[in-house]
Design a protein around this nucleic acid. Structure first.
Lengths: 201, 201, 201, 201
DNA sequence: AAGTAATCGAGACGGTACGTCCAGTCTTACA
DNA sequence: TGTAAGACTGGACGTACCGTCTCGATTACTT
């Protein structure tokens, strides 16, 4: 019990290493946000972090690794408490997403991630995993709505999710049209209507 | 008919230039498809095209330019003749898209384009323009359906479009789940149901 | 006469290349003389020459190449006209060498060359070739003396050369004792005496 | 007299230190012989010796230090007992040297030492000291010959030494010509003849 | 048909970044 | 205290491309 425990919490991790991780992390994000994926080079990260290039190679296997690290910490799934009413819950989650999409730092990184994943299986795996994590809150709401009989019981939650989130990302990454609350409401109402949702219920 | 034709044939374009454009174009696509955006360098294009590097710089301002060129020619909006029945027409267009998304060469290029556009205003412009072109067939069908009274008259065609196309791109670029005809049908039917569409009508 | 001459003078050599060669050359020598072989890095040469590192790699295959180039230009065999009297001629040549050994820049380079040649066959070849060239004037004098009957006819010119030059280099590289004219005279007289030379003759 | 003796035998030297010295020493020699001076890095020595790099830095101030250490132990002046007849004694010593020059491990190291000494005063000092030690046996023979009247009494022993050893080193390091017993004999006989030596005496 | 101009290839150049190796310093933990 | 282990800064390596720049040599249009 008095022995050093084996995990991260109280791990006897070299404080120098911890410091390195932190500054490099921060530098990666700053560059990614400022200059995009193109501007991200090991060199530039090292420079901005005030760290030797070798140190980065010691701690991250590739540029991709840096990006994943950065993204993971940038985009924690939002903490939104569902109230049990499907429309309200969807509006809360998607409204938050709609607010973030045009401005949050992680979105640019996501775009880079998506592109890079096209020709890097490891990155693709990483991307799927991140995606899965971020879908959870939405899926929970959808499944709850199905169980509560608020929407059609034969609906496929994952399809519903794609129908809800897809339009938002489409506008952000493809058409670059506005993503305001009206748009979100139209999407949510349209999808719910198609699923037999009745507001009054 | 007697007018100078708008295209290459009789344009007073130096045949050497024409040839250069063509071989470089071809090489760009081949590399893009084979090695992805990462493998695309002016050097590699020049090499594969059997052309001097200088020649490329003379004709394209940047790597982005090459990509746009390649993409434009890779992804011609499909020639699908609407029959006037909204569900059938949407299924035709989106079914085609669903078929292409997992395999067509332009999709990877699109991902690269999207990411690059994040930090290059010119590319972003280019991207929007391409996007706009590709939306047309779908928009035409949606607007026709509205005019024909097949769906609610207060529907915003662009919102409807995002709700139809968004889920497909979402699955391709984000979640990497299957994009089969069942999925397309669920999306189309869901959206149409939300728009007051009645199959029998 | 009107034909393009084959040599450097009017060779259609890119003037940029000529300039590069020259400044790099000079920088190499300066560093070699100042900091020795250890201080010679492609980087340092590039820096001092005010040239990109790549440019050096384009024109020289290795650090060794640089050194050889430098040495060749530094150490032209001296132009000493033999008068036909062996002792006088040897004293002229070896006296000149004795004067150079403690001060001339090529000597340090030579030491570097010798060491580097120990583990680089190409350099070793180069070294032998240089050595051969520099032996010529001395060999000529020795052979002439043999033919003129000034020294024993069964003497091996190459052995005699080693006996004359060896002691000088030994003092310069090994023992670091003085190499003055007295020493040269002692060596020359000693060797000649052993070869049956008679001053008066 | 009661003080601890100055040498290793009874010094209260930490046995770990002694062990370190020994394995590093051995590793240095092995690498020097195997890969030459170029292949010698603190890193490589540490690796082969199975020792931490830090340990080496603690015990040797530089790579040069390692080399000197290695050289001292590699090239012990040969134990040759002079018989009192100058030609025989010279042939014994120089014959031995001639045999070693083309093959012994210390020769390459010597070349490195010579080059390095060109721009490192400490090394130069070290080199002179080593040189001085190795000259002793030869000097002893020469001086004895002078005293015994076998060669001219006005000969400078150090000059004679340079005339004897110089040609051998010259061939080894410069011209890379053969160094066989015939060559040694020619040199010895030539020098002795110049010094008034008479075989019969 | 000859002369002019556009286009080309070849490739040198200064650069940036890569990923690796090593140098030398420093810190921590252990024996 | 000396050592092992290993992280750190930093410099150089040799390679790949970048984008710019001359420089002839074709090739096409023009007169």
């Amino acid at each position: 019990m008095g022995r050093p425990c084996p995990d991260s919490a109280c791990d006897p991790i070299d404080p120098r290493v911890r410091r390195t991780r932190s500054v490099v992390h921060e530098a990666t994000i700053e560059i990614l946000v400022g200059d995009g994926f193109e501007g991200l080079s090991i060199e530039s990260v090292a420079q901005r972090a005030g760290v030797a290039r070798t140190t980065i190679y010691r701690n991250w296997r590739s540029k991709a690794d840096l990006v994943i690290d950065a993204f993971s910490s940038l985009a924690p799934p939002p903490e939104i408490e569902p109230v049990g009413e499907v429309r309200a819950d969807l509006m809360a989650i998607l409204g938050h997403l709609a607010h973030e999409l045009p401005r949050a730092r992680w979105v640019s990184v996501l775009a880079a991630l998506v592109a890079a994943a096209e020709c890097d299986e490891e990155l693709a795996r990483e991307k799927r995993s991140l995606s899965e994590v971020r879908q959870r809150p939405l899926l929970k709401v959808i499944r709850a709505a199905i169980e509560a009989g608020q929407i059609r019981s034969d609906a496929d939650p994952k399809v519903v999710l794609a129908m809800l989130a897809g339009p938002l990302f489409y506008r952000r990454l493809m058409s670059e049209e506005a993503i305001n609350l009206d748009f979100v409401a139209e999407v949510v109402d349209g999808v719910l209507a198609g699923l037999g949702y009745e507001p009054g219920a």
